[in-house]
């Protein structure tokens, strides 16, 4: 655990150590230091609130990428009363970076999809760090079509640095796999509830991310590219990642303000990894609330609303007639 302390948490960790020290000193010497301890504990609480109220985007990204951050399989375990994993795309293989399955919540059946990261290096190698190949997206596609066939709403959890950029992935049509999913998801006849739980890395995230409700956990991010890659492309300098992170508006608050996501889901203090069970509870509540709303629409309404949801994303203006005329003359 010691290895996984984030920079900005250090003052808190130090304070906690001091409190512990005082406590053991008090027990040893039989002195009453409770006043001092209470004062420190109050300070710790205040400090924690302050730190987490004012995280910059790079700090949020650190939490989103935290090695102990709950994964799709963790959430599946907590959310469902019963969950069965389903494997394979029936074309090439079974991508372990993409989790798929079916489950029950309060007797309602759901199809579940999610990018799957590992927690240990060994597991991460087998999960390819949550970066799917085309077969991952095609497994998701197969399950989505099955969900449509059997009238199961879909829960899709996004947590990936991106779709894998490799030779095999390109040979087998990474772009086509993502594009096909977007096309099929755009008019799938069941509700699709999407939650970014950690990293929302570009097209690889969107490949299972088109839906009726798009939500984000408080300390997740969703971006057209990683801030590192953006800085490298725009400023030819990857060290400008913090500036890119702010400029790209990739945290949940900024994206809610932009109107691209519908809802922010609170995390336990210090991030989901501090209390995965609590985090899953908050996630489950939000999903079920949104599903209750979506249930009210007919299939036709659902699909039309989904089309319009994306149809209106984009910011542009129209040239005046004068401007157009002037250009014609030129």
């Amino acid at each position: 655990m010691v290895n996984n302390i984030l920079d900005f948490e250090k003052p808190l960790i130090e304070l906690a150590a001091k409190i512990k020290e005082l406590q053991s000193f008090m027990d040893e010497k039989g002195l009453d230091l409770s006043e001092e301890i209470n004062r420190l504990m109050e300070r710790a609480e205040k400090l924690q609130k302050e730190i987490y109220a004012d995280l910059d985007t790079m700090q949020i990204i650190q939490i989103a990428r935290h090695p102990n951050r709950p994964t799709a399989s963790d959430y599946a375990k907590y959310i469902f009363d019963d969950f069965i994993e389903i494997h394979g795309d029936r074309k090439f293989g079974d991508d372990k970076a993409m989790l798929g399955g079916i489950g029950l919540i309060n007797n309602q059946a759901f199809t579940f999809l999610g990018h799957q990261k590992g927690k240990t290096t060994k597991e991460n190698l087998s999960r390819n760090f949550g970066m799917p190949h085309p077969e991952g997206y095609r497994k998701a596609l197969r399950l989505m079509k099955q969900a449509e066939k059997f009238g199961r709403p879909i829960i899709s959890l996004i947590n990936t640095p991106g779709a894998y950029p490799g030779i095999g992935a390109e040979e087998r049509g990474q772009a086509e796999a993502i594009a096909r999913n977007l096309m099929v998801m755009s008019d799938l006849k069941v509700p699709i509830i999407v939650v970014v739980t950690g990293e929302g890395g570009s097209g690889g995230a969107l490949g299972i991310g088109l839906g009726d409700r798009i939500m984000m956990l408080e300390y997740s991010y969703y971006s057209v590219s990683t801030p590192e890659a953006c800085a490298a492309i725009i400023w030819k300098n990857a060290e400008k990642a913090p500036e890119a992170a702010e400029a790209l508006k990739i945290n949940a608050k900024a994206l809610k303000k932009l109107g691209i996501i519908d809802r922010i889901i609170k995390e336990p203090v210090g991030g989901a990894h501090k209390n995965p069970e609590m985090s899953a509870k908050l996630l489950k509540t939000a999903i079920l609330e949104e599903y209750e709303e979506l249930k009210k629409f007919s299939v036709e309404e659902l699909i039309e609303n989904r089309y319009q949801k994306y149809r209106k994303i984009g910011e542009f203006s129209y040239k005046s007639d004068d401007e157009m005329l002037k250009e014609e003359v030129e």
């Binding site: 594009a179 977007l182 096309m183 099929v184 755009s186 008019d187 570009s202 097209g203 969107l206 088109l210 969703y222 971006s223 057209v224 590219s225 953006c230 492309i233 725009i234 790209l248 508006k249 990739i250 994206l255 932009l258 691209i260 989904r306 089309y307 994306y310 149809r311 994303i313 984009g314 910011e315």
Partner: peptide
């Protein structure tokens, strides 16, 4: 690819255009 300077708004154009193509397809 997607235009970096418009961030996630650009990424969402992938969804928007694919949905429009789906209507043609149908």
């Amino acid at each position: 690819g997607a235009r970096m300077q418009e961030g996630l708004v650009s990424l969402m154009q992938m969804a928007k255009t694919s949905a429009a193509v789906r209507r043609l397809d149908k």
